[in-house]
Simulated scan of single mutants.
Amino acid sequence: MNTFISLTVYGLSDGALLALAALGFVLIYKATRVINFAQGEFLLVGAYMFYTAFVILQLPLVAAVLFGVIVAIILGVVVERFILRPLIGESAISVIMVTIGLSSVLKAVIQIFFGTAPRDAPKILPTGNIELLGATVPLNRLIVIGIAAVVLVVFAAFFQRSRHGVAMRAVADDQQAALTMGISVRRVFSLAWVLAAVSALIAGVLLADLSAVSQNIAAFGLIVFPVVILGGLDSIPGTIVGGLTIGLLKQYVSGYADPGLAEVVPYLVLVAILIVRPYGIFGETRIERV
């Protein structure tokens, strides 16, 4: 029982981070229909920018977070304005190849300035353990679950109640109708990339605090694809269900079976979902008549 509780806490924390990373992916896809293969590198950039502010520049924690958010906003705006916007009207494969190239460029820039060796950074979350239902679990894992839950609730409230959130939902449903209502579609596109970069920043900082500031953060971002396929490419609630499901599944397989198999399981789930339900659990089924 203790093992089960411990694996569950680890799985929920991993799943919460995956949900944050997948949220940005889904936001971009819903608003612009762009599949962003650079989402893992957004996590990487976010983690290293926070490291730069907090460790190298020795800014206070709050100032370091604000620095990371500002960089994330600038990154989102620059990518949308100067890289993706000129590709409007181009084929889907062209846009996909550009995002793949963007991922390579972002990773190369990080390697040029910081190298490939992991960086040590002071922990921002408590590192002690607590007793939970008879099992000893890391406190930082529970805090990560709480932070991710708060962030996801804030994003959900933003989409449901704010004017910009309603505009994003309108553009996602029908761009032409949104234009006739006076909504700036280009501004919504920029906002989607900004929010995706900010959510990736939060996930990257938390992931770096749990492990280390290293290139492996981008590899963690690759698991976003099984998450969004499972939950649905255009479903925000699906990111939560998909993230928690993949996170728990990885930990259970690692703890009760084989750690090597656990690394493959998310992609086995991806293949199975594509065969059985290509649009995911919560994804919208689109039927095109020709």
Rank of each mutant, 00 (worst) to 15 (best):
1 M>K: 02
1 M>D: 12
5 I>L: 14
5 I>V: 15
6 S>E: 11
9 V>H: 12
9 V>E: 12
10 Y>V: 10
13 S>L: 08
14 D>G: 12
15 G>I: 12
20 L>W: 09
21 A>L: 12
22 A>S: 15
23 L>F: 14
25 F>E: 10
25 F>M: 14
25 F>C: 05
25 F>W: 07
26 V>H: 08
28 I>S: 08
29 Y>W: 14
33 R>Y: 03
36 N>M: 11
37 F>D: 02
40 G>D: 09
43 L>F: 07
47 A>L: 07
50 F>I: 07
52 T>I: 05
54 F>N: 04
56 I>N: 07
60 P>F: 01
61 L>D: 00
62 V>L: 15
64 A>N: 04
64 A>D: 01
66 L>K: 01
66 L>R: 01
72 A>D: 04
76 G>Q: 07
77 V>K: 00
79 V>N: 06
79 V>H: 02
79 V>A: 10
81 R>M: 10
84 L>R: 06
86 P>V: 08
89 G>N: 07
90 E>D: 11
91 S>M: 05
91 S>E: 12
94 S>L: 11
95 V>Q: 11
96 I>D: 01
97 M>T: 05
101 G>C: 10
102 L>V: 07
105 V>M: 13
106 L>G: 01
106 L>S: 01
115 G>C: 09
116 T>P: 00
118 P>C: 09
124 I>C: 02
128 G>R: 11
129 N>C: 00
134 G>S: 07
134 G>Y: 00
136 T>Y: 07
140 N>K: 15
141 R>T: 00
144 V>E: 12
145 I>G: 01
146 G>K: 03
148 A>F: 02
149 A>W: 06
151 V>D: 07
151 V>C: 13
151 V>W: 08
152 L>Q: 09
153 V>S: 04
154 V>T: 12
156 A>Y: 15
157 A>D: 09
158 F>V: 03
160 Q>P: 00
161 R>E: 07
166 V>F: 14
167 A>N: 06
169 R>S: 09
171 V>D: 06
172 A>Q: 08
177 A>H: 02
178 A>P: 05
180 T>R: 15
181 M>K: 12
181 M>H: 08
192 A>S: 15
196 A>F: 03
198 V>T: 06
200 A>T: 04
203 A>G: 08
207 L>F: 14
208 A>G: 13
208 A>P: 02
208 A>L: 08
211 S>L: 13
211 S>E: 14
213 V>G: 01
215 Q>Y: 12
217 I>V: 12
218 A>I: 05
219 A>V: 15
222 L>T: 09
223 I>C: 00
225 F>A: 11
226 P>N: 05
226 P>D: 02
230 L>H: 04
230 L>I: 06
231 G>P: 03
233 L>R: 00
233 L>C: 05
234 D>G: 11
234 D>N: 14
235 S>M: 03
237 P>A: 05
238 G>M: 02
240 I>W: 01
244 L>R: 04
245 T>K: 01
248 L>Y: 12
255 G>W: 03
256 Y>M: 09
261 L>M: 13
261 L>G: 06
263 E>C: 02
266 P>A: 04
268 L>C: 09
270 L>D: 05
270 L>K: 02
271 V>A: 15
272 A>F: 14
272 A>R: 04
272 A>V: 14
272 A>K: 03
274 L>N: 05
275 I>T: 10
275 I>N: 01
283 G>M: 07
288 E>I: 14
289 R>A: 02
289 R>P: 00
